[in-house]
């Protein structure tokens, strides 16, 4: 059935709640209204107010309460309205959710999912556009996932809900309605008319830790996730390059095998993400490639990322890694 990414995420919640009455969903505006992006629409009506409900505007409280619920033995799936709002909950995520199993010797565990819309491209300014994934990938005990299409969003979310450990589930909000390729002046193809919008209505999971090779080619390896998968595809096409384009889907656990095999084949690699560059996830990817593929590399690895500045409003398209910037860097990677 044709679905937007929002509908696929809503459908995943619905199936999870239908299958397991321990699954509870809450967050700001999540209950009666169904979420500001509608990802939880209709769930309160269907499953009742004790399984899908609104929360006070308090991210620390949402995650802290979810940690207690997970320790009790139910399965909280919580929404942080924008990833930019997650910081008050950071201590509960890092010192509590991620540490509980280890510090208690497995006595208490914390299976919970924290969903949050992430990334830019919507004129959201610095408080509705950030990509904080590296703040989570750096934390031992957390898994960090970012889908790039409705099919994966549903399968990965159901896998995250099944997972026995805390999972950070980042939803690129620019992709909610269709694959955005960085050409902000052109209309997007809606998911309803896209192959990746054809979502199986049955329950299925997409395993965490498996990347997807979205295009295959001998010229170079391009590693991306979220919105940048489509920007990378557009840029490679415009540069007339036949690249291996890897959609990571899951940052932790990381599918090193797919990355290493591809870079060993192409000998050239570009890494693309929206987040700021310094200590971004691209640095980790670059280090992994250097450690494992050094003697196969023909040219230095290049990172094409957001600038090391707060995310701007009016200057959004000069901040967002554009197809032009990607093409320019891809060409440098292709130099002899």
């Amino acid at each position: 059935m044709r679905m937007t990414m929002i509908e696929a995420i809503q459908n995943a919640h619905d199936l999870a709640m239908m299958q397991d009455d321990k699954v509870v969903v809450f967050g700001e505006d999540v209950g009666f209204f169904g979420g500001v992006f509608r990802c939880t629409a209709g769930l309160q009506e269907k499953y009742g107010k004790s399984r899908c409900f609104d929360a006070p505007i308090n991210e620390l409280g949402i995650v802290g309460a979810a940690v207690g619920m997970a320790a009790y033995g139910i399965k909280p799936v919580v929404e942080i309205q924008f990833a930019d709002y997650v910081y008050p909950a950071y201590d509960q995520i890092v010192s509590e959710a991620a540490r509980l199993r280890h510090r208690s010797g497995g006595d208490f565990t914390c299976p919970l999912v924290i969903r949050m819309p992430t990334g830019g491209g919507i004129f959201g300014g610095q408080t509705h556009s950030q990509s904080p994934e590296a703040l989570f990938t750096h934390v031992a005990g957390l898994k960090t996932v970012m889908p790039s299409n409705p099919i994966d969003a549903k399968g990965l979310l159901l896998a995250a809900i099944e997972d026995p450990d805390p999972v950070i589930f980042l939803e690129p909000k620019r992709l909610y309605n269709g694959p955005f390729d960085g050409h902000y002046d052109k209309p997007i193809v809606p998911w309803k008319k896209h192959d990746f919008g054809d979502v199986d209505t049955e329950y299925y999971t997409t395993p965490l830790g498996k990347a997807k090779l979205v295009e295959e080619g001998p010229d170079l390896t391009i590693i991306a996730y979220g919105t940048m998968v489509y920007v990378a595809q557009a840029a490679a096409k415009e540069a007339e390059l036949n690249a291996d384009i890897i959609d990571l889907r899951s940052l932790v656990p990381l599918d090193m095998e797919t990355i290493i095999a591809s870079v060993k084949k192409t000998g050239r690699c570009a890494i693309v993400h929206e987040a700021t560059r310094t200590s971004g996830f691209g640095a980790e990817l670059s280090a992994v490639i250097q450690e494992n593929c050094f003697y196969h590399l023909e040219t230095p690895i290049r990172r094409i990322t957001g600038w090391d500045t707060p995310y701007p409003h009016a200057q959004e398209w000069d901040y967002f890694p554009s197809p032009e910037r990607l093409i320019s860097d891809f060409n440098k990677v292709m130099e002899d």
Partner: peptide, 17 residues
């Protein structure tokens, strides 16, 4: 202080269940 809100969450889970 982190455990204070967790206790509330645990109690909510008891009520939910």
């Amino acid at each position: 202080g982190t455990q204070f809100i967790q206790a509330v969450g645990w109690a909510m889970a008891s009520a939910i269940s």
